[in-house]
Design a protein around this nucleic acid. Sequence first.
DNA 1: CGCGCCATTGACACGAGTCAAGACGCGTGG
DNA 2: CCACGCGTCTTGACTCGTGTCAATGGCGCG
Lengths: 221, 221
Amino acid sequence: MKCLTDEEKLSVEKESTTTTLPKGQLVFTENGIPFGVYILLSGKLKLYKTGNTGKKHIFQLCVKNDLFGLHPVLKDSKYPDSAELLEDSELLFIPAFLIKKLLKENNNLCLTILKVLSTEFERFIEQEVMFSQKSVAQRVSTVLFYLSRLYEVDNRIIIPLSRNDLSDLCGTVKETLVRVLHDLKEDKLLYTIDSKGTLEIVDLARLKSWGEIVEKEFNDE
Amino acid sequence: MKCLTDEEKLSVEKESTTTTLPKGQLVFTENGIPFGVYILLSGKLKLYKTGNTGKKHIFQLCVKNDLFGLHPVLKDSKYPDSAELLEDSELLFIPAFLIKKLLKENNNLCLTILKVLSTEFERFIEQEVMFSQKSVAQRVSTVLFYLSRLYEVDNRIIIPLSRNDLSDLCGTVKETLVRVLHDLKEDKLLYTIDSKGTLEIVDLARLKSWGEIVEKEFNDE
DNA sequence: CGCGCCATTGACACGAGTCAAGACGCGTGG
DNA sequence: CCACGCGTCTTGACTCGTGTCAATGGCGCG
């Protein structure tokens, strides 16, 4: 993230503000006006958009060092989505005028962000294919695999997301998600490790392919 | 698209090539190696990605003056998707080294593309929500509405896409799509105007909200 | 004329959403 | 300290949307 000159870093330090906010806090909401961009210094957050029926669709999770909230600043429009903290987090706010100035003056930063966006793009396309073609079972295992990279600590993968958040990530409802998790537990790929339903994934390799396998078994049987 | 200096325009003219290709032609395919980017000078094309089961998912259509194939060039990776012409088209090929040079030297171009990408982003997020939450009927009417902007000529909206392409755009199968179109014809929102099944939309305003309305009626009845 | 491609329609089955109820833990207040 | 209420997770029964499979019909082309 730091392709800035020393002088530029200084201006960021001077003009930006760092705040610590509690879990559940909304950073911005749909149709709000953007005043700048954010970088997550610690913690995690979800980016989601609310559908017409009121159901949320989480399209991205952000972790340490992720930049978010950039798009509406670039195109001078309102937020199309909302951002909510999943944990107590620390975030850096960079005001719009400054990020715009930096982008204008630092071509290197510009190119780096272009590259980042291109990478995100591929993820989005893959997600679209997933949502339009895969079964819920496959989506759940794909999403859990995606989450495993964000939640691996000390060689253990522990996912403390609520069933609602998980289902909003998978594009399904709580009940269906729970049933799929049930099957995954039967196959010993993961467990709930406390009364709150926190998940621990214990067989990542098999989880990755589980979705496809289940479909196949069904067709062969 | 033209935020280039005269000198730069000259270099584009010298280093790029224009070709005319027939309908059905593949411009690039998944896992191919990118040698540059393309601008569609005339005609139309579809960008799609093939799912594991072989079904295609069309995530974007390009029309005159659209730039495509940029992402893998920026991140030096293979194509994640395929591009196929929907009509006889003329396209401009800009080799990778040149577009990279332009981006590096012309900050203005860089910023413009950032803006374009930000706009595309919002479209992608909306599409994701659509695919993960809306019924087929709603998706079809949303997609047709999207297509109406691309296919309006002389105040008539005529869509010559095959049922397969339409269903790949809507994330459903041909048969289900046909049934929805049948309902739309019953409600006099569109017609097939020839033996090939070419569609003409005649009531765009009602089409836009048709999806939601149908759901509501069903719940009220 | 016959073959093949595409659009269309019908019958059927399964996946997944909805509704309802129960289980469990947690906090608050009597 | 216990009772109650609230929120979340879980399970069951049921319905319906949508995918699958199969058959038909129209049209163009060799």
